[in-house]
């Protein structure tokens, strides 16, 4: 049983949490939906995608936007997950995301859910959204330390040391399993009546949104049910 020791307000509701929990964790527990991309339960938060931004007011200070997956709760915080500022920011973030990786399903999904109807930037075709989940999976869960980021800024990418599989890699394929960008969007029906079959893997992955990124609590979402 969790012993609650901290009270804060999220979207006007008084909620309780335990010191050390993040705003995102508490919000999830109360069924408040905050979109995420680089957050996965049981891996340390990374704070890279910023999609989980919320508006936080602390005392008399002017409210700030901050990633909720890295922000530890504090007594008396007032959090707004749906303010105009948050919704606007999230929408632009989603637009930036989908413009850089339009052929990644999760980027499309996030853009659609955040209400992006038009992309005003030049389209690129990145296949990795640089969420760093694979790196954390490898380092924290598999003890592999076989993957990492290289390069700075727009040159940043995921790589194995010297681009070769090191002996530290256990071939566990954990990285692949957690990668939210692995899923490819449906290509549509080619010849009437023919299905490409790419989505057949959906049988094995019954959840409606990859990794429960949207924090819904439907029955199919293993993460949502495990956090109950």
């Amino acid at each position: 049983m969790i012993v609650f020791d901290t009270t804060l307000t999220i979207d006007g509701i008084k909620v309780n949490g335990k010191k050390g929990e993040t705003i995102l964790e508490v919000a999830k527990r109360y069924g408040i939906n905050i979109p995420t991309l680089c957050f996965v339960e049981n891996l340390p938060s990374y704070g890279a995608c910023r999609l989980c931004v919320v508006e936080i007011s602390k005392g008399k200070n002017p409210p700030i936007l901050s990633a909720s997956c890295t922000y530890d709760i504090q007594e008396g915080l007032v959090v707004n997950t749906k303010s105009e500022r948050v919704v606007k920011a999230r929408k632009i973030l989603a637009e930036l995301l989908v413009a850089s990786a339009p052929n990644v399903k999760i980027a499309q999904d996030i853009a659609a859910r955040c209400g992006v109807k038009e992309v005003r930037f030049k389209m690129e075709d990145n296949r990795c959204v640089l969420c760093g989940i694979c790196v954390r999976m490898c380092h924290e869960q598999m003890g592999g330390e076989a993957l990492g980021f290289v390069g700075r800024g727009i040159e940043r990418k995921i790589q194995m040391p010297f681009n070769k599989r090191p002996k530290e890699c256990l071939l566990c394929r954990g990285c692949e399993f957690v990668c939210p960008a692995m899923e490819i969007p449906c290509q549509g029906v080619k010849i009437p009546g023919e299905l490409c079959g790419r989505c057949l893997r959906m049988d094995e992955m019954p959840y409606c949104c990859t990794l429960g990124s949207f924090g819904c609590s439907c029955d199919h979402n293993p993460l949502a049910s495990s956090s109950k």
Binding site: L51, L96, I154
Partner: peptide, 21 residues
């Protein structure tokens, strides 16, 4: 700034690039 951004977070990495564009 585009050259010096570490590239970790989306708004800075992608945003500066787009502002520059």
């Amino acid at each position: 700034l585009k050259e010096e951004s570490c590239g970790k977070c989306l708004p800075c990495r992608e945003g500066i690039k787009r502002m520059l564009e």
